[in-house]
């Protein structure tokens, strides 16, 4: 039986552009994921706390304002502090390739840019998440 993965979608910072995150929420839900959306303007603390409370498998962060190099590392750091080592952090927005590479070096997952077909995101999560779960079960 297929597991139902839980995904927290989050909008940190002051950015209010929520078209993308809502499209992703609908696409993931239609693909069988359980989706929790934080709403706008969440601080990194609020996002990570929600991830703990909701016991999610992944956190998807949407940033279109250019503040990604401040907000992603802040979220990642808090995730490490709270022991969310097996939770996948991924994201999307207006983020240049050079920055996406830097974020990958810090341990973030894929960053999806404008024009990404939603099935790509679904495929990525279906491939990345089972591995994470298994690891969790071993420990």
């Amino acid at each position: 039986m297929e597991q139902k993965f839980r995904i927290l979608l989050a909008k940190p910072g002051l950015d209010g552009h929520d078209r993308g995150v809502k499209v992703i929420a609908a696409a993931l839900r239609d693909a069988g994921f359980e989706v929790i959306y934080t709403g706008l303007r969440q601080t990194p603390e609020q996002i990570v706390n929600a991830a703990v409370e909701e016991d999610v498998d992944a956190i998807g962060v949407s940033i279109l304002s250019g503040a990604h190099m401040t907000l992603f590392p802040a979220i990642k750091e808090l995730m490490d502090e709270k022991g969310l080592k097996d939770v996948l952090l991924f994201g999307g927005g207006i983020i240049a390739d050079v920055d996406a590479k830097k974020l990958a070096d810090m341990g973030c997952g894929r960053i999806f840019g404008p024009g990404t077909p939603t099935p790509d995101v679904v495929k990525y999560l279906k491939e990345a998440l089972p591995g994470k779960r298994e690891k969790e079960q071993i420990f």
């Binding site: 002051l14 304002s65 250019g66």
Partner: peptide, 9 residues
């Protein structure tokens, strides 16, 4: 709250 967003967009 302005951290990372000053003069950016």
């Amino acid at each position: 709250r302005s951290k990372g967003e000053i003069g950016v967009c």
